Simulated assay, not measured.
Amino acid sequence: MVNPYAVPKLVEVLENTEQEPMVRHEAGEALGAIGCVDAVPVLEKYKDDSVIEVAETCQLALERIKWLQSEDKESEKLSENPYSSTDPAPPSTNMDINNLKIQLLDENSALFNRYRAMFSLRNIGTTEAVQALAQGLKCSSALFRHEIAYVLGQMQHKACVQELKENLCDEKENPMVRHECAEALGAIATEECTKILEQYLQDKERVVKESCVVALDMSEYEQSKEFQYADSLTKLNS
């Protein structure tokens, strides 16, 4: 929605250290998406939060606001986002898959730059780009892995099912990552994805269990005749 009206409530959620880290993360990300400079002080306050996922989210949000305010933003030739989402970082100006993959997986590079590579690969959208992105599911940052899973869910490409499955099945994996992997599998919506999700309907992590329920509903809708009909009409009118 990108509405500044929400900023005070989002700040309140971010500042509530008793709140679930995933919720605080979403609040911080939303502040970055809105891009309001009024949010900078609170993002600065929590950029070194004890919860690393919250800290990294605030760092990314600050970088995005800084980029939005930069004078050379307009001169960058960026690839088009086919999903109309407001992303935590703009795509990179680079469109070479090999170079983007190197940037994506470089753990010594700034997280904001790695995110830019991520969204460039998503926008490219080829099988090769999907496979490059899927390798990011083994990177050290849980926040990064969660965003990779989200992006793969947007793309709905079968080439990453095995990697998403591995992270969902790993009970030692961060619940936020497992949640996004479940939703991505629901969006891909193959028979194999359905079988994987059904195995975790009673997972001990509530967020994972509920995500699998939602993902199976998504999968059923994606495979429904009603969706196929609506999707066909969209393609005909595009």
Rank of each mutant, 00 (worst) to 15 (best):
P82C: 11
V42N: 01
V51D: 12
I52V: 13
R122L: 11
F112Q: 07
F119L: 06
S50H: 13
R64H: 11
R64L: 15
S92Q: 05
W67E: 14
C139K: 12
E26R: 05
S75E: 15
D49V: 01
T127A: 13
R114S: 05
K73C: 07
Q131W: 01
E71A: 13
L104A: 06
N113V: 13
S85V: 13
P21K: 03
M118T: 08
V130F: 02
G32L: 00
Y115Q: 04
L78S: 08
G125M: 03
E128I: 08
Q59V: 08
Y115E: 01
P91H: 05
D49Y: 02
K47Q: 15
S85I: 11
K47D: 08
L68S: 00
K45M: 10
N81P: 09
L62I: 09
E26M: 09
A27H: 03
C36A: 14
V51E: 14
C58S: 05
E26Q: 12
G32T: 03
F144Q: 00
E80Y: 10
S109L: 15
Q69D: 14
V51C: 13
I52T: 13
L31Y: 00
V54W: 00
D72W: 08
M95E: 12
G35A: 07
E56G: 07
N108H: 14
I34K: 04
P41Q: 10
R122P: 00
F144C: 05
E71T: 12
L133C: 08
I124M: 06
N94F: 02
D87G: 01
A55F: 07
K47N: 13
I97L: 10
K45C: 07
L137E: 02
D106M: 08
T17Q: 14
